[in-house]
Design a protein around this nucleic acid. Structure first.
Lengths: 150, 150
DNA sequence: CTGAATGCAAACAGTTTGCATCCCG
DNA sequence: CGGGATGCAAACTGTTTGCATTCAG
């Protein structure tokens, strides 16, 4: 039985992460290390502003967070999620992980639960064929009221 | 066999639409009629700016479009969709229709196809129970490359 | 006539960009 | 030392708000 990925995937150590930067000849800067360190300790999607706020005070500029997240996304070291407000949020990806999973978001308190379940590939294939589309992907997020807020 | 809803649902005539405004004692203004008329003739989700652009020149202010769409959404006369960019888009709803359907969006040309299929309610129930959430809903959108763009 | 609806200007939030300076490799 | 990375200011987009004016009922 293949071990569950789950949140252990977020626990790659910092050297392993910076190595991935080095391999693509990007510089290992203080800002990037600090950002990766934040993401490593945070299992749920974080917005740029949240990352910035979590950073040791004045560690880098908010703009640098934006630029870093773009870089990390293009390297597939993080995955971007849209949770319905117009705010980009990111989660660290394990190497080789495509990060395909979904979230269950409380509409009252914004608590987030990771969801591994998904519908079968058949549905996607059917939709692709019927409409002649290729390379189909999907975005799926669940919303509801969490136990605490009920 | 129940007749397919599909886009015929968008074809309610203007008087029927304005009646729904009247019933809730909202005023039937030129701007609102013009906006409803645009939506009626447009089967796919439209952004505020697109609606504004489609309006007979200078028919109303962009701000009025925003305010009108909020009103129509609160009355459940339109449904809001998020297609992944941070832009709100709206589709007219038939009376009593909850508008639950999804879209298949071309990532090259932004063409949109309405999708009626969805996964079974079982999945949602399972997720609700497992996590103790209530009143679960979901947002689901498909992305791919349309026949023309391939 | 009266409150709801509108137009206009301005504020806001999230994000991107230009440019001079800085610092990793 | 050189080019990528950063900070700062400013632009940009989508959206919201305040306020005086207008108009549907």
């Amino acid at each position: 039985m293949k071990p569950h990925h789950h949140h252990t995937t977020h626990r790659a150590d910092l050297p392993a992460l910076t190595d991935r930067l080095r391999q693509k000849s990007h510089k290992i800067t203080g800002a990037r290390q600090a950002i990766l360190e934040i993401l490593r300790h945070h299992p749920h999607p974080m917005s740029n502003k949240e990352i910035f706020a979590a950073l040791p005070k004045g560690d880098c500029d908010l703009v640098t967070v934006y630029r870093s997240m773009h870089l990390l996304e293009s390297m597939q070291m993080v995955k971007r999620f849209d949770l319905g407000d117009g705010v980009a949020r990111y989660e660290l990806l394990a190497e080789g992980d495509d990060g395909h999973h979904h979230h269950l978001v409380c509409t009252r308190c914004a608590a987030v639960v990771e969801i591994e379940d998904c519908f079968t590939g058949e549905l996607e294939e059917k939709i692709a064929q019927r409409n002649g589309f290729k390379a189909i992907t999907h975005k799926l997020e669940f919303f509801g009221i969490c136990p605490q807020c009920q």
